[in-house]
Amino acid sequence: MAIEVLIFYLLAGVAIAAAAGVVLARNPVHSAVSLVLSFVNVAAIYVMLRAEFLAVAQIIVYTGAIIVLVLFVLMLVQQQDLPEFHGGRPLRRAVGFLLGLALLAEVAAAILTRSLRGAPGSWPPEAVAAVGGNIQAIGRELYSAYMLPIQATALLLLAATVGALFLARPELIEERLAVARRLFTISLAHPRGVDPLRPVAELPAPHDSELKPAGGDRALVMARSAEEFTEQPAWGEIRR
């Protein structure tokens, strides 16, 4: 049995060291990589606890999805030099450590004096093996006794998706219009630069002189982008 305990200490030690690395690292990218290491070690501990499905789910969801998302945001968000953990705010750091130590002492006392034990559950290892394994057992339990929560989770994920789309929109109405103009303006002969949200009836009707220059000489308007064309510098010259 000693080898099992040894493996646990190894995994737990690396998980805790990597978790400390998340807090202590200067560079946020190093923090994210430390977090991956911690999650993978915790997933290995899940396997020791006969929770194989959760170990795989942990790796897929946390390291596969959440950390990738975090790294993308790290790339997109402008990073400035913050006075990080190692410098500035010594009072706050001391208070944080003291609170952590106090909580650790409390939790350790609670764990060591724990006497309350629940009734043994209905899924001993033999029962789990009888239905085919951990994932089969979880599926049976999840889709019988936890039907409503699993549907609520689906709704929650949908709401989170819609919320993320809403949060990711450009902040200002002008930016949104600019994006719309860039994306949805396709006509070559259309008077661009009108506000797409204004009703068509309000748009000024093109004057004859705008469409046909009085002098009879035609001009070709070259624009590198929709915005440039919007300001119509060339039209003004023709009108003159």
């Binding site: 737990a12 750091r93 909580l103 060591l112």
Partner: peptide, 26 residues
């Protein structure tokens, strides 16, 4: 108790990080 201590250690490290760091991503 082994697993509970591991859990407590990870939780408290996370809590200290929330209390002491300033970068919102951390």
């Amino acid at each position: 108790a082994h697993f509970l201590f591991l859990s407590a250690a990870l939780f408290i490290i996370g809590m200290v990080g929330v209390l002491t760091r300033r970068n919102v991503l951390i």
